[in-house]
């Protein structure tokens, strides 16, 4: 008898594009997908971070520096990359930027930049991926990362919330539009995860804020790997009957 375990979450032989691969959830995702056998194109604005991540993946994985605040970058790079790397089975848009600002200090230019990175890039990536030149003939899977703040309100967060809740609209609409192509579209809404993103906005908050945030999560704060696990599931055939779903991975934050 063959001595190999049944592994329905194996991603061997599959190729994926991962944005936001230089840090946090993106890095943890790349490492996990790599362990599950996938081949990856890792994209981010942070070249040094990308190099660190790829050193923890497969030597054959490819990195590409892209600035998602510029529209059109995915189209510009992906066709030529895929012609060498091979067609993709899926893509995940993890890159993102927070924007803490109460309504009265909302700056349109900043809000639009955040929207471009968090939301429009997800749409542009989907558009490129859905092309038969880019994705495998059997279809594929697209995963977005939103936030608990796309589901529940939070003061001083409207710029970020609108960028993330728009991902839910994109998920629903594209899941219907792309179902005939056998492309599944899903979104994960994480609670607070310990990454650089939290550090980058810590100056907005007073002492005791961390404790308050922790209390909002019945299971405590998340690790990047907690979100990566859900991404791997949505990329694998284990989720082949799931599309148009917004999956909360939030330690119980939205259960309250």
């Amino acid at each position: 008898m063959e001595n190999s375990c049944y592994n329905p979450i194996s991603l061997a032989g599959k190729k994926f594009f991962i944005s936001g691969a230089a840090s946090g959830i993106g890095r943890a995702t790349c490492i996990l997908l790599s362990k599950l056998g996938a081949d990856l194109i890792l994209a981010d604005i942070n070249q040094k971070g990308l190099e660190e991540t790829v050193s923890l993946c497969k030597p054959t994985d490819v990195t590409v520096v892209m600035d998602f605040s510029q529209s059109g970058v995915i189209k510009e790079h992906l066709s030529s990359l895929v012609s060498v790397f091979g067609k993709l089975s899926g893509c995940v848009h993890i890159a993102g930027k927070p924007y803490i600002s109460p309504l009265k200090s909302i700056n349109s230019a900043t809000a639009l930049e955040v929207f471009q990175i968090n939301t429009m890039t997800a749409l542009e990536l989907s558009k490129v991926f859905a092309s038969r030149n880019i994705s495998v003939d059997e279809g594929g899977t697209i995963v977005f990362i939103s936030s608990v703040y796309a589901l529940v309100g939070s003061a001083a967060n409207v710029g970020y919330s609108m960028s993330k809740s728009a991902l839910h609209g994109i998920t629903k609409a594209l899941s219907i539009e792309l179902a005939p192509r056998k492309i599944r579209v899903n979104c994960i809404a994480p609670g607070f995860v310990k990454t650089k993103m939290g550090d980058s906005i810590s100056h907005f908050f007073t002492e005791g804020h961390d404790e308050k945030i922790r209390e909002m999560h019945p299971l405590g704060l998340g690790e990047p790997e907690d979100v990566a696990n859900a991404i791997a599931f949505l990329l694998s055939d284990m989720s082949k009957w799931i599309t148009g779903s917004i999956i909360s991975v939030d330690g119980g934050f939205t259960a309250k």
């Binding site: 803490i100 600002s101 009265k104 200090s105 003061a155």
Partner: peptide
């Protein structure tokens, strides 16, 4: 919230 708006203005 006004304090947060000053932090956001300083950033932006």
């Amino acid at each position: 919230l006004t304090i947060l708006s000053i932090i956001a203005l300083a950033d932006d």
